[in-house]
């Protein structure tokens, strides 16, 4: 009798705890549901062709858009990619192919640890390196900040992708007398290409969503800008400015810009997903 009560209690505790874990899942996903729903439903209301293509309007004026901010964000991530991708991917290839020794471990650990450096700190660095020497805010400074921010994560992820290439492929190539560097370039990297592209696109997507390092590097701009030495608008900074403004119209535009940003980031991630699927590894 006592045994049976005891085991019933244990069963109830088991159910209770399973229920608690399920509750945790629901609590974790509730904000996600709320955020996505509100961004889509509120954002869709301000979405239009003119919103996507026009310059921002002044307070009180109706209409206006975030065209320059969209272009600015793309401009910034291209700059960031030019600066960050070669370094990040290169370091990743080094880690995978030659990173077995002590230097490799040091680089790997640094990449892991740098991966969680606050993005605002990197903004201060870009300010010190570019803005303080050129004496003006510029797209270049913003791109540099985003580029630096990409490198550590990119290096680790690239390493993982390159490591997925089966060792037998390397051995087969080396056995045919192909020198090691050719093996790396035309066998290993070619096989890992889809994976590396995936990693790069994810890095770009992450960079597109950064705000903090842009606040005092690329600053903002009410007009179109295509010069690297001039301040430039970006979607994220625009969302920030609109969101904290007291004007209802601007707050509406914040949701609209947030929808555009999520679509952009989502599109890049989706693209990344497909490159990974199509790749050989």
């Amino acid at each position: 009798m006592k045994m049976r009560v005891h085991s019933a209690v244990r069963r109830v505790v088991n159910w209770g705890m399973t229920g608690l874990c399920l509750t945790a899942v629901l609590m974790a996903l509730m904000p996600l549901g709320s955020i996505l729903w509100l961004v889509v439903s509120k954002g869709a209301r301000s979405l239009s062709i003119s919103f996507l293509t026009e310059l921002p309007a002044a307070v009180g004026e109706s209409g206006g858009g975030v065209g320059n901010a969209i272009v600015g964000t793309l401009y910034l991530v291209v700059l960031a990619g030019l600066l960050g991708l070669p370094l990040g991917v290169g370091a990743g290839v080094y880690l995978a192919e030659r990173g077995a020794g002590r230097l490799g471990s040091a680089v790997r650990f640094t990449a892991e640890v740098l991966g969680s450096v606050p993005s605002i700190v990197v903004g201060v660095v870009a300010y010190g390196l570019v803005v303080a020497t050129m004496h003006r805010f510029s797209a270049l400074a913003g791109g540099l900040a985003l580029g630096i921010l990409m490198v550590p994560t990119l290096a680790r992820a690239t390493e993982e992708m390159v490591r997925l290439v089966p060792h037998t492929l390397r051995e087969a190539s080396l056995a045919l007398g192909v020198p090691a560097w050719r093996t790396t370039l035309s066998i290993v990297l070619r096989t890992a290409w889809g994976g590396i592209l995936n990693v790069a696109l994810l890095g770009i997507a992450r960079a597109a969503g950064e705000t903090a390092p842009l606040l005092f590097t690329s600053l903002n701009n009410q007009y179109w800008n295509f010069r690297p030495d001039q301040p430039t608008a970006s979607l994220t900074v625009q969302i920030f400015n609109y969101a904290i403004s007291p004007y209802e119209d601007w707050q509406r535009k914040a949701w609209g810009s947030a929808l555009v940003l999520l679509l952009l980031v989502g599109l890049l991630s989706l693209l990344a997903h497909f490159t990974r699927r199509r790749s050989a590894i």
Binding site: A28, I35, V265
Partner: peptide, 12 residues
């Protein structure tokens, strides 16, 4: 959830 930009969290 991990991929949502920080500024969107702030807006929400």
């Amino acid at each position: 959830l991990a991929g949502i930009p920080s500024v969107v969290y702030g807006l929400w």
